[in-house]
């Protein structure tokens, strides 16, 4: 059934309609809350608070955003208080990632990648990536997962996180580069000529 119809019904007090609206998003809301808090218990509290708040504010929902995005905005607000200040990762400066050829040392030389599926099982890839994303501070990982797992646009994410679009883009890129580096460690094809040296 279309979302607008369900919203009208829910706003009129139809509980089943509300459940149909919320159900498809629960897992993602929980995953997002876990990402922000780094802790399962806090994430559960946040998801519960979010759904109760959604009931309280149901009449205020206007179809300017999708219902899912609206729920995200509530989770992000609730999660803001809980955000863990993880230790900042040592990330390679962006300038060092390209222009590798001009470097004296060759640690950042880019190499071609093997087919990931020739190196690891799909389930291993999944685990590897989710661990790598977990290593990122939430300020980078949250925009990243909203972009590529939840498929929100940069504009939507910027609005949700109250960031400029430029800042959002740069955080998404930062996360992307960080994950690229992690994957590089297992996927790059070693250059045999350099080993001889």
């Amino acid at each position: 059934m279309d979302e607008r119809k369900l919203i009208t019904q829910a706003q009129a007090g139809d509980f089943t309609a509300f459940q149909s609206l919320v159900e498809p998003h629960q897992k993602r809301l929980f995953a997002l809350a876990k990402r922000m808090t780094g802790n399962e218990q806090d994430a559960q509290d946040i998801v519960q608070d979010t759904l109760l708040k959604a009931i309280d504010k149901l009449e205020t929902f206007r179809a300017e955003s999708s219902f899912g995005t609206w729920l995200y905005s509530i989770v992000l607000n609730a999660g803001r208080l809980h955000i863990v200040h993880q230790k900042r990762q040592n990330m390679t400066p962006i300038e060092d990632l390209l222009d590798g050829a001009t470097h004296q040392h060759d640690s950042h030389h880019l190499r071609e990648w093997r087919d990931p599926h020739s190196v690891m099982e799909a389930s291993e890839i999944r685990r590897f990536i989710s661990e790598a994303v977990d290593e990122l501070p939430a300020e980078y990982s949250v925009p990243f997962v909203l972009r590529y797992e939840d498929e929100l646009s940069i504009k939507e994410i910027a609005d949700l996180l109250k960031l400029s679009e430029a800042a959002t883009k740069s955080r998404v890129l930062r996360a992307r580069l960080f994950l690229r580096e992690k994957l590089d460690s297992i996927l790059k094809i070693e250059d045999s000529s350099e080993k001889v040296r």
Binding site: L97, L110, E112, W113, R126, Y148, L183, L187
Partner: peptide, 17 residues
């Protein structure tokens, strides 16, 4: 190389999402 690997990174993340 950067282009190819960034593209693959996102593809893998989407698959693992």
């Amino acid at each position: 190389l950067m282009f190819d690997s960034l593209k693959m990174t996102v593809k893998l993340c989407r698959e693992s999402g």
